Amino acid sequence: MTKYRSGLGWDSHRLVAGKPLILGGVKIPSEMGLEGHSDADILSHAITDAILGAAGLGDIGMHFPDTDPEWKDADSRKFLARAEKLACDAGFMVVNVDATVILETPKLSGHRDAIRKSLAECLKLEVNNCSVKFKTAEKVGPVGEGKSAEAQAIVLLTSKY
């Protein structure tokens, strides 16, 4: 078995009025939120995909399909915890996460510590092994126009053996 594996995750959802904006399990005050089958937490979704990909276990849609009523309005931290357990069962453990949220507004820097803490708790990591960065799209494309938001993540797994 390979000692180290990396995985890349990406997610995008539409921004709509009347929905909560949840990132990494943290509710962010905002007039606009993310639309989706679950809580539409793009950050948790991107990290989940990165973990599953690194472990060679497919993607988020295979494990948590949006056609399954079990996942309707689900807390996406459940996806993260399940992906971490699946990777662990496959002989891996998460070493670190580096993620970026791309969103025009609201500004997120004041929420960084809470998001990192939430992710670290869910993934059984030290907070310093969870990096979260925030970017805008400089008014370009659907993210820059305030129509959607995106998240990207990379994780490193190591073999437990």
Rank of each mutant, 00 (worst) to 15 (best):
C122A: 15
D89G: 10
I115Y: 02
A55T: 00
L80T: 06
L34N: 01
S118M: 00
R116A: 07
G24D: 06
A114I: 00
D41P: 07
M93N: 08
L86V: 14
E138L: 05
K85H: 15
A54L: 08
R77G: 02
G56S: 04
P69S: 12
L23Q: 09
A99G: 07
H63Q: 12
L52K: 01
S30C: 05
E84S: 14
P29R: 02
K117N: 06
L34D: 14
L43Q: 11
L34Y: 07
G18T: 08
R116N: 10
A90F: 14
D89T: 06
D39I: 02
A81W: 11
E104R: 02
S118I: 00
E35G: 00
V143I: 15
D66F: 13
S109H: 14
G58S: 04
I42P: 09
H111I: 03
R116H: 06
N129H: 15
G61H: 15
L125H: 01
L21V: 07
V132G: 03
F134N: 05
S30W: 12
A40K: 04
V97Q: 12
M32W: 11
A74Y: 05
L52H: 02
C130G: 00
S44M: 05
S131P: 01
F79T: 02
R77Y: 04
F134P: 08
E121F: 03
A74V: 10
N96Q: 11
E126S: 14
G53I: 00
E138R: 00
S118W: 02
E70D: 13
S131L: 05
D73W: 14
D41M: 05
I115K: 00
L119M: 12
S44G: 14
R77E: 07
L52Q: 03
D89L: 13
T67A: 15
S76N: 13
I47F: 09
P106H: 15
P29Q: 06
G24Y: 10
E138K: 04
K147L: 10
E70H: 11
A137I: 04
A114G: 09
I115R: 00
G91F: 11
G56P: 12
L103A: 08
E31S: 15
V140P: 02
K78I: 08
G91S: 08
A17C: 03
V132W: 02
C122W: 01
P106A: 05
K72T: 05
F64E: 08
I102F: 06
M62K: 10
S118L: 07
